[in-house]
Design a protein around this nucleic acid. Structure first.
Lengths: 216, 216
DNA sequence: CTATATTTTTAGACTTATCTAAATTTTTTA
DNA sequence: TAAAAAATTTAGATAAGTCTAAAAATATAG
């Protein structure tokens, strides 16, 4: 077994090295709220254990073994988030920190039973895909609202920013997962957007439009 | 906040210093699978934090602050055990180790919501009382089967030995929590007991009779 | 009530994960 | 493409929790 710390590094590397790239020391340090020097030390240790591909100064990627662990952590994180929201009535902006702890509970039996208990959900409360027992998952094909043209429609299906302030903003404006929306107007001046959902029109900034993801 | 290790020490001291006594260094070391020297070091640290009353060579007890923490860990442990058995269909002999991990999840909100989700159970799957939000609980008044006379009846309501081998034995002989039993015979020769539950008579050893607890 | 056995504590060392400060490598820019 | 800037690594320290071996205190037995 691996320590919590090692698991957190693997998760950060997974996210930092998404879509074929590699994760940098500074990037990992920022994600884990630690210092670059500490990251270097840990990278040596993880490379020793064959969980990452690491060459000095070159950034890192996960080995298949490392990826397997990272995906199991992500699976646990997202399943627990689903549980917290669907069964214990937490709000979607309240679950992240608790799930950060729960994701390190080691029992595979527990996660798999939890998965069944909830009916094997495919997406977590923020729209992120939940890997199955084998680590497989299918991501929605998503586009930011800022990438749509006037009159294009779609369903809100994910967020790029998971911060609770952003999630609370969406909650307040009722732009939540599952809502069907249409781009009513785009202000070329500041790239802000007016989205329509039913009768309700909401004016959102370019930044919000960038972080709100739509399935077409 | 306290580390997992500190929490485990407080829990061990709570159990070791039950009914007015104090816990000894060796006893704690045995409970935590560590060495007496390590225990001494930790006792100094916990005393420093005012969580225990410690005088060299004299054994330890919990301060009110230490007791509060210990009870919150025990509350979490027992609620999670209940969840695992009642919601996720674990067997009662399979839950201990998983609950040992889950008990260290810090969120009080989580435990309290979990408690409500399950309908505020008063006893865990092994019959141990679950402290409420304030740390209060009422223990069953229990007697071992070995303390009963012939023809006395009662309901199985707890166990003294929580080992999975003992729990599996009880499962197999169907002597589980909630079963009503009567002492049919006592063999004075080896103090073994024949208990009757419905039509079924089961011959149990003195040791089993000692570890099986009955509410009268 | 002294001698022996047991329990507990101290001393010194090790491991893990972290840090700061300094050195080195890579990248950028002029 | 050489100098400056940024990123990364190394060196040396620190804190938490553990260990073994030895010393000290307490308990037990004759």
């Amino acid at each position: 077994m691996n320590t919590f710390t090692e698991e957190n590094y693997l998760k950060a590397i997974y996210h930092g090295a998404a879509n074929g790239g590699s994760a940098s020391t500074n990037e990992i340090a920022a994600a884990l709220n630690t210092k670059a020097a500490s990251v270097t030390d840990m990278l040596k240790k993880l490379a020793e254990k064959k969980l990452i591909n690491y060459t000095k100064y070159q950034g890192v990627t996960l080995t298949p073994a490392g990826q397997k662990i990272a995906l199991s952590i992500i699976r646990k994180h997202r399943l627990w988030e689903y549980f917290l929201v669907e069964k214990l009535n937490f709000k979607w902006d309240e679950v992240h920190d608790v799930a950060e702890e729960l994701e390190h509970i080691s029992s595979k039996e527990l996660v798999d039973r939890l998965d069944d208990f909830m009916g094997n959900p495919k997406y977590d409360p923020h729209g992120d895909p939940i890997p199955n027992r084998k680590g497989e998952f299918k991501a929605h094909e998503l586009k930011p609202v800022s990438g749509l043209s006037v009159n294009e429609e779609g369903v809100i299906s994910g967020v790029r920013d998971h911060s609770s302030s952003f999630l609370q903003y969406l909650e307040k404006t009722q732009l939540t997962i599952g809502k069907k929306i249409k781009v009513a107007e785009i202000h070329t001046y500041d790239h802000s957007v007016i989205v329509q959902s039913g009768d309700k029109r909401t004016h959102i900034s370019r930044e919000v439009a960038n972080n709100l993801l739509i399935a077409l």
